[in-house]
Nucleic acid binder design. Structure first.
Lengths: 155, 155
DNA sequence: TAAAACCTTGGAGTGGGCTCCAAGCAAGCG
DNA sequence: CGCTTGCTTGGAGCCCACTCCAAGGTTTTA
């Protein structure tokens, strides 16, 4: 049976920011898929799917065919996770992965891709700050309205 | 035949930031669906779909049954657009719309909803800034690598 | 050694957010 | 009057990013 992800990505705890993934034990360079699940917060399904669609580099296998992830694979997954947060489509990440696989002569193209991604991120940040301003105006409105209702009740 | 959106949302022009939607003509308070399409950048399909799922307030109709949007509807669509950029699920926006329809006694709940949305936005901004740092490190790496290749070619 | 836990595969299914279609009504124009 | 253009509806279809299933092989624990 498949281990259904216990480390839920969106936890509802009140304080303390994002639910940090457990840190990698150091000195280790071989992880089973379930270890990667706990380290990345992805599901095993998703990890295998990433591999099928060409988003992963070649993953080592044990002599019986089970995946054995290495630290560089985890580094890659970290990057993928970051890019995912920017809303970059998986297809674009696959493109980047292909460039990496193709070797050093794709440096320029990778550079361009990263730069335009960077620009996207900057404009998304700007959009969000814009939205923040709108939310703050509305929040103030409701705060005032709440005040008004309270004093009305008091009088 | 349906007017296929001419105002493409994602234009590829180089400068000048986001493709500003045309400003509303002032003094007007009745718009056909196609006017709203050009004002918001949404498609007519999407506007009708928003209505079906309960994301819109009641929209006036002409004597023949055609939609006539008013300025307050456009204001609402602006808000929806902002919230969409934050990644808020449409279902949550529908919830907010319901609260608005239910009247003044939902002020407190709306306030809470906006505040938690605000928190989400803040943490998304933080995530993006994190990602930006990663991208910058990689970009510097590739810039250096490009330099190295160039000087290699020169020698 | 036997049971429980974990891993493998290809392919099918899901949910969100649109996107489109067909068939038909309505308005403006030459 | 006929043509073009625009609007109406319910329902079907699409794309993305997973998510799960069945059927079987492997590894670990007791």
């Amino acid at each position: 049976m498949e281990t259904t992800s216990t480390t839920s990505t969106a936890s509802a705890d009140s304080c303390a920011g994002p639910p940090r993934q457990p840190r990698r034990p150091d000195g280790q360079d071989k992880y089973t898929i379930s270890e990667v699940v706990t380290l990345t917060g992805l599901t095993a399904h998703t990890l295998r799917w990433y591999e099928r669609i060409g988003l992963m580099p070649h993953i080592d296998r044990s002599h019986t065919g089970q995946r054995r992830y290495r630290n560089r694979d985890l580094d890659w997954l970290d990057l993928v996770g970051k890019l995912r947060l920017t809303g970059m489509p998986v297809a674009d990440m696959v493109r980047y992965a292909e460039l990496v696989r193709e070797g050093d002569h794709t440096y320029a193209e990778r550079f361009d891709l990263l730069k335009s991604t960077r620009d996207d991120v900057l404009s998304r940040i700007a959009e969000l700050q814009d939205t923040l301003a709108v939310l703050d105006r509305k929040i103030n409105f409701y705060a005032d309205a709440g005040q008004a209702l309270a004093s009305e009740r008091a009088s």
